[in-house]
Write a protein that binds this DNA or RNA. Structure first.
Length: 863
RNA sequence: GGACACUUAGUUCAGCGGGAGAACGCUUCCUUCACACGGAAGAGGUCGUAGGUUCGAUCCCUACAGUGUCCACCA
């Protein structure tokens, strides 16, 4: 027997372990069609947040739904080593525990990092468990494990041999806090307040000077020339002459190049090839020096004279003062301009010339773009995100993949200690004593991009790879399309010749109640575990997946979690009731259409319609729409209507009536449980196991299938008329300040196939006497109350005037409807251009309203 | 500078080429034997503004305004 109140803690306890230990999560039933998905591997940097909860719940719903449809589902778990992020966290922890992190060796650090990883992996496992994820733990992977490292090396070597990986000196984004290079997508551009500084660059052997503007005066130590546009009348005459760098007194040539915009600044641009990507190109073009002026921590280096050792921003200020003192300062303009910050450390990124490893993007991007035009393209859901992907691909620049870190896949390149030769190879050279391995590791995303295939054992042709790759769906947030989705696509095409997943379902971000992004600095993050603790995982899951449109952001609003919980309680109690009325020894039977009362038939119609609509929307991954259909069925049709009205039939003297009702109640309840199950597996399992007949677990059940043969829509209209009538009676009581349970004498004039249950129902819940007297009612004398819509007459009540008012109001309503329909139908354009079905519909409406009007007028006249 | 979203009830959000919906909140009533985490009834919206397409626009198109996000090397 179920508890009176739904208690998520009790319901959820132990279920996950039972499922897991029975092997329900383990894939491999070859008799079924495979359906696979990989989890986006969470970083081992900390606990999972609400965004993860949302992401994985969507995945789990899809998996449970597909499994219930008879697929051999495989949902592969795993985690990401998250290079920079994890290294930073581990370093911080070591630092706080008093360890001198500047003295630690690579090996010592890695040992600590693995300990860290184990600790956080355990936390993440706990959270997956609490969320109820159907993960196949027999296939769990970690991006740094041996097999994946093999795949990484394989890919690196293969790309290198094809010329798609190269080592080169280029301008990269330097994070001076982490002291590593970053890729472009790891740089966040923020609008910062800054200044445009204007300085005089005196022309050598002249009294004149060029005014040059810069936002980063400290880079002046790396200036090699001043550039003007060759068309610029102001400066033409100076080209070929020299100016003096006011920072250090160096003489710099004035050169001409079209790159310079005449309109911008003063039209004269300083050129710092080692610290600006555009200046670098000019430096290449004119074979200029490319002096680097920063140390790795972005302090000034030995090329900066007395400023050596100063922080770059301190130097900026000091230099400004010195230039002012020398009389070469012109002005400062405050500006707001985009400044690059490191995604992880938030430090201002310094563009810096550096020797790094790069992936050549154009060939890979072209391949991905071409595939997207074919039939094996990745289908984005919602579709618009394909555009995001394509646009990024179209302008993707070479990808800097080397990182000056320890935590990651070490680049499989070896330098000969004697000759300097570079060897890129899967394995270390035999004469390793003569070689030194590249100390850099790879960008985290280099291994994550292989995730959809490396996890199945690639490059080996394993049975799993054959069976589960390409995966069916990938679910992730739109914020990592650039980081991850696009890279998986081009790399999978390059390495396997196949797309990594057939569909890519994109969701938004969880925001706080005020619509702000959840962040550590704001302290507005919500811990999913705390929510589960209070409302249960089911309520959280239901809230997360039913409160937004696909691809749209969502706000976390606690009241809505509460509302979800209330809904589950509603289902719980309706189940409790149904189970309580099913007799001892109840045996479920297939519902026999011929035996159904109109009311039974109506609820079955609605049930089937609900199954159809829910399934339709599940297929589109529109969980909000799907759940709404079920919600409406549960509340309006099942609980408010059928459950109440069926009480009459359950008390019937006719055992057949009783039995059929029991079967219908059971059928509805079971399907509700099965339909809600992917969303809220714990409560669904609990209720399922309380059904009089059930399998070992709901996880072995089949998803309901729409059965059109059991539907008979012909009863709908009269049932809806009954509902209308009931509503009228309730309104009557409220308006007349009668108690809800007040008994009334009632006579009816229903032009419907009245069935016994209905009259009994009315007697029991609404009226003291009900007489069915047909058309003669219209000639009844005495005081009447009329609710014309439902053809209801209530006798022995004062208020003829009131009745007349009501009738008149109804008459007005019908007249307005008739006029509306007539207006449309008398429009020749509507008749000729609107679809025929639409026109017919209007004609039917018109006829119906005309009939209603006639009947109302008749009643009115007889009063 | 590009791109993409969003603007609908007090609030958070669905929806849709043919009579505006939900949740929460609010008002009134009800502890009747599934559920007060409940039930019944109700109030509340010229669907951002202006044009256009259409027989018909909240929905499609254009412009504008506001909000948000992403991309972008202008010194």
């Amino acid at each position: 027997m179920l508890e009176k109140r739904y208690n998520p803690k009790e319901v959820e306890a132990g279920k996950y372990d039972t499922w897991k230990s029975r092997g329900y999560f383990t894939a491999g039933d070859k008799s079924k069609q495979a359906f696979s998905m990989v989890i986006p591997p969470p970083n081992v940097t900390g606990k999972l947040h609400l965004g993860h909860a949302w992401d994985t719940t969507i995945q789990d719903i899809i998996i449970r739904y597909k499994k219930a449809q008879g697929y051999d589902t495989c949902y592969l778990p795993g985690m990401d080593h998250a290079g920079i992020a994890t290294q930073a966290k581990v370093m911080e922890k070591l630092y706080k525990s008093g360890i001198d992190v500047t003295k630690i060796t690579r090996e010592e650090f890695l040992k600590k990092a693995w300990e860290w990883k184990d600790e956080y992996a355990a936390t993440i496992h706990d959270q997956w468990k609490m969320m109820g994820l159907t993960l196949d733990y027999t296939k769990e992977r970690f991006t740094l494990d041996e097999g994946l490292n093999y795949a990484v090396r394989k890919v690196f070597v293969s790309l290198y041999e094809k010329g798609l990986i190269y080592q080169g000196e280029r301008i990269i984004n330097w994070d001076p806090v982490q002291k590593t290079a970053l890729s472009n997508v790891e740089v966040i551009h923020k609008d910062d307040e800054g200044a445009m500084y204007y300085f005089r660059y005196p022309i050598v052997d002249s009294n004149e000077a060029l005014i040059v503007a810069t936002t980063r005066p400290e880079t002046m130590f790396g200036d090699v020339c001043v550039v003007v546009n060759p068309e610029d009348e102001r400066y033409k005459k100076y080209v070929g002459m020299k100016v003096i760098n006011p920072a250090n007194g160096d003489e710099l040539p004035i050169i001409a190049d079209e790159y310079v915009d005449l309109e911008f600044g003063t039209g004269a641009m300083k050129c710092t090839p080692a610290h600006d990507p555009n200046d670098f190109l000019i430096g290449e073009k004119y074979h200029l020096e490319k002096p680097i002026i920063f140390n790795k921590d972005a302090t000034m280096n030995e090329k900066c004279g007395k400023y050596q050792g100063m922080d770059r921003f301190v130097c900026r200020q000091a230099l400004l003062e010195d230039i002012k003192a020398a009389g070469n300062f012109v002005k400062i303009e405050k500006i707001v301009h985009p400044v690059g910050h490191s995604e992880r450390s938030d430090a201002v990124v310094e563009p810096m010339l550096s020797k790094q490893w790069f992936v050549k993007m154009r060939p890979l991007a072209e391949q991905a773009l071409a595939n997207q035009k074919g039939k094996d393209k990745v289908e984005f859901v919602p579709e618009r995100f394909e555009k995001t992907f394509i646009q990024w691909m179209e302008k993707a620049e070479d990808w800097c993949i080397s990182r000056q870190l320890w935590w990651g896949h070490r680049i499989p390149a070896y330098y000969n200690k004697h000759t300097g030769e570079v060897l890129v190879s899967m394995d270390a050279p035999k004469d390793m004593e003569n070689w030194e391995q590249e100390s850099d590791v790879l960008d985290t995303w280099f291994s994550s991009q292989l995730w959809p295939f490396s996890t199945w054992g690639w490059p080996e042709k394993t049975p799993d790879l054959e069976r589960y790759f390409p995966t069916d769906v990938l679910v992730t947030g739109y914020d990592i399309i650039f980081f991850w989705v696009s890279r998986m696509i081009f790399e999978s095409l390059e390495q396997t010749g196949k797309r990594p997943f057939k569909q890519c379902v994109i969701h938004g971000l969880v925001r706080d109640e005020l619509g702000r992004k959840m962040s550590k600095t704001l302290g507005n993050g919500v811990d999913p575990i705390a929510v589960i603790d209070e409302y249960g995982a089911d309520a959280l899951r239901y809230f997360l997946t039913t409160n937004s449109t696909p691809g749209q952001d969502m706000r976390y609003i606690e009241e809505k979690v509460q509302a979800s919980s209330n809904y589950l309680n509603k289902i719980w109690n309706s189940a409790r009731y149904v189970l309580s009325v099913l007799p001892e020894g109840f045996k479920p039977k297939k519902v026999n259409k011929a035996e159904l009362s109109p009311l039974d038939q109506y609820i079955i119609n609605r049930l089937e319609e609900t199954i159809k609509n829910v399934t339709l929307n599940m297929e589109k991954y529109d969980f909000n729409a799907a759940s709404n259909h079920l919600y409406n069925f549960v509340y309006d049709d099942f609980c408010s209507q059928y459950l109440e009205m069926s009480k009459v039939a359950l008390n019937s003297d006719n055992p057949k009536t009783k039995e059929v009702t029991e079967q219908v109640l059971y059928e509805c309840l079971k399907d509700i449980i099965l339909l809600i199950y992917p969303y809220t597996p714990f409560i669904a399992e609990e209720l399922y196991l309380n059904l009089p007949e059930h399998l070992e677990s709901i996880m072995l059940e089949r998803y309901p299938i729409y059965n059109k043969d059991i539907v008979d829509a012909s009863v709908n209209e009269e049932i809806l008329t009954l509902f209308e009538l009931i509503k009228d009676v309730r309104n009557y009581k409220i308006e007349n300040k009668l108690a809800p349970n007040a008994k009334l004498d009632l006579s009816l004039n229903l032009k419907i196939k009245v069935f016994d249950d209905f009259v009994t129902y009315l007697n029991r819940f609404t009226f003291s006497t009900v007489k069915l007297i047909g058309e003669e009612i219209l000639s009844m004398k005495g005081d009447l109350k009329v609710y014309p819509k439902a053809n209801l007459l209530i006798v022995n009540e004062a208020g003829k005037e009131d009745m007349i008012k009501r009738l008149d109001a109804e008459i007005e309503f019908e007249k307005a409807e008739i006029e509306r329909a007539n207006r449309m139908l008398s429009n020749p354009n509507f008749i000729s251009k609107a679809p025929e079905a639409k026109v017919n519909l209007e004609k039917e409406k018109l006829a119906k309203h005309e009939q209603n009007l006639a009947s109302l007028i008749e009643k009115r006249n007889k009063l």
